[in-house]
Nucleic acid binder design. Structure first.
Length: 136
DNA sequence: GCCAACGTTGGC
DNA sequence: GCCAACGTTGGC
């Protein structure tokens, strides 16, 4: 059973459009153990929402894990994990944080509960609801 | 090994 | 720009 994820990025650092332009992006720079555990658990082919934090505050699309279980190239100690992702689809309607908080079924997802977690897991039910809200 | 102080993240 | 939440650090 593939798991689902949500990855946060600040759009002025690395946005959805940047990922699309690059075709494949390395998700690195994570320095939080819980986020790292999520990164390390990802498998090739699993899908993740791409969320814009600080600015936008919305899920803008879905990306697919293309390379899993690599060590973070930006980390000199080699202790942190990273993955590579490819853009899959852009949401016709981005799903905002307000919408997620307003939906009782989504109100206790990791994204809302652990606001500062940069890589969160999404349950299959939450995944379906958010896809529908995004118009996919 | 505990806990207070401090730094960082991210929503508002 | 502020502040709450959380992680990390360092003194004891």
């Amino acid at each position: 059973m593939p798991r689902h994820w949500l990855m946060k990025s600040e759009p002025f650092k690395y946005s959805w459009d940047d990922l699309v332009a690059e075709k494949e992006g390395t998700w690195d720079g994570v320095r939080n153990h819980r986020a790292k555990n999520n990164l390390a658990a990802m498998k090739v082919g699993e899908e993740a929402f791409f969320y814009h934090s600080r600015e936008g505050l919305e899920i803008v699309g879905i990306c697919t894990v293309s390379v899993a279980g690599i060590t973070d190239p930006t980390d000199p100690t080699g202790k942190w994990a990273a993955v590579k992702v490819k853009p899959k689809v852009k949401f016709p309607t981005p799903v905002t944080l307000q919408q997620i908080k307003a939906e009782p079924k989504l109100a206790d997802c990791e994204l809302v509960r652990l606001g500062r977690l940069s890589v969160a897991e999404i349950t299959p039910q939450e995944w379906k609801i958010i896809c529908k809200m995004g118009g996919v």
